[in-house]
Nucleic acid binder design. Structure first.
Lengths: 238, 238
DNA sequence: ACGTGTCAATCAATCGCTTGATTGACCCAG
DNA sequence: CTGGGTCAATCAAGCGATTGATTGACACGT
């Protein structure tokens, strides 16, 4: 792959990710993509072969991209699995914050997440890749953390706990429109922090720990990374 | 409306609900619907005016239909809001069971739920109705129950707790395909029971109660309704 | 330095097909 | 014979796919 692996190709992938992500496969025509990418209609056939192939490649690229929620699992990639509960709780808090921070904001890669959600809701040939490269790593990390927090639980129970934690977070993205309609909409930057606080507390209590333990974990997590705490949030306005 | 308010009309609505639910609006053609309903192509225009109008009417009917998850909120419709925590916990357990029992199985009205989920993910003109008639009642009931369980919490916190409970359950439906791929698939009837147990425990702990309290609530809920308990499940094979 | 051939890349134009919508004829109960 | 309901047939528009021509960059033997 050269430095400029075909400008048009990338523009097409960007447009495809954005359009497929926000509208879904069937609602987007190749003409929409070509127009959005300022490319010719035939360039899709030339670079990818078909609309379907372009979609699959856009999904794959969306998952193997740096700086996304898909990277949250890397939190533990070069760190040994913690041995005591307090340590695991801190990592869990950091994971939750990292996941929410990339999941919630209506940011540049909204479409990327939506692609993955759509693929989960209505599986296609791309689902296997999405599960293996995006979902399973996060699930595995979460299970490993919960295992330390709940040594007595069997694998099935650990999996359910992990899904309860992930489910809470995904819920806010999947049903964003609904939730914002249920109450007055609020700014995303505020919501990341308040939801981090809520999900971490709710989940650690759900795993059997008390509020003081959760509080301490969040405090330590804030020290160990760039998490805004309730105190440090007071003055900022980003 | 007569007893047989046009057979074709109903067949079209059934077909539309099923097809739109499983594939989404854009992936379904009016010819698919007409074929599925054994009706003529023009009957869609005659009875509804357009594809879009048929979709909107199908969504509306799906929400105001008896025996669906949309009825879970009616659990409290003719019951006063409970005054003590134990009572509220029992109702919460019953709500969770009822919701999961109608949400999880790949049953007749899969499509109905999928319609609502889709509408939540990608809002259209029908979203307002879906929120007001399906989602808000459930959310309100849940908030009222949680308020009794957590008297010290403010409205925003109650709303987040309610979303955490709903989110866990919705997660298993929205990402059913993904979750079944993560582990070996398991029968739905088993999963309703084991997930009921898990979600109720996790949520009541998340709200600040201990395991014994949750256990008691589930036991009482089983007595008060038709919920299968771990013990009563042992011999059945439905 | 020049013509020649090769290659990736882009382009306008068009293919055959499907889409949602619409027509006018037809049927039959009231 | 009137009107609610169904029907096959058809419409323009849009779809994804495909074509053959064209471009500019690069490498070649002479």
């Amino acid at each position: 792959m050269p430095d400029t692996p075909c400008q048009t190709r990338i523009a097409l992938l960007d447009a495809a990710e954005s359009l497929f992500g926000s509208r879904g496969f069937d609602a987007v025509g190749i003409r929409d993509i070509a127009r959005e990418a300022d490319a010719n209609l035939a360039s899709i056939k030339y670079h990818f072969g078909s609309k379907r192939a372009l979609y699959l490649e856009a999904v794959n690229r969306a998952m193997t991209r740096p700086g996304r929620a898909s990277e949250a699992w890397q939190l533990l990639e070069h760190t040994p699995v913690p041995s005591d509960a307090a340590e695991a709780a801190v990592l869990l808090a950091r994971f939750i914050h990292r996941f929410l921070a990339e999941l919630l904001p209506t940011s540049s890669d909204d479409a990327c997440i939506m692609l993955i959600i759509r693929e989960g809701m209505r599986p296609s040939e791309a689902l296997d890749g999405v599960v293996d490269r995006y979902i399973r790593p996060n699930q595995t990390l979460l299970v490993n953390l919960v295992r330390v927090l709940k040594p007595q639980a069997d694998d099935a129970e650990l999996a359910r706990d992990a899904q309860s934690i992930l489910g809470q977070m995904m819920h806010y993205r999947v049903f964003r429109a609904v939730i914002e309609k249920l109450r007055g909409a609020r700014s995303d930057s505020q919501r990341v922090h308040e939801l981090f606080d809520h999900v971490t507390r709710f989940s650690l209590r759900g795993l059997g720990y008390d509020d003081a333990f959760a509080e301490q974990a969040m405090k330590d997590a804030a020290k160990a990374s760039d998490i805004d705490t309730a105190a440090s949030m007071e003055g900022s306005s980003t």
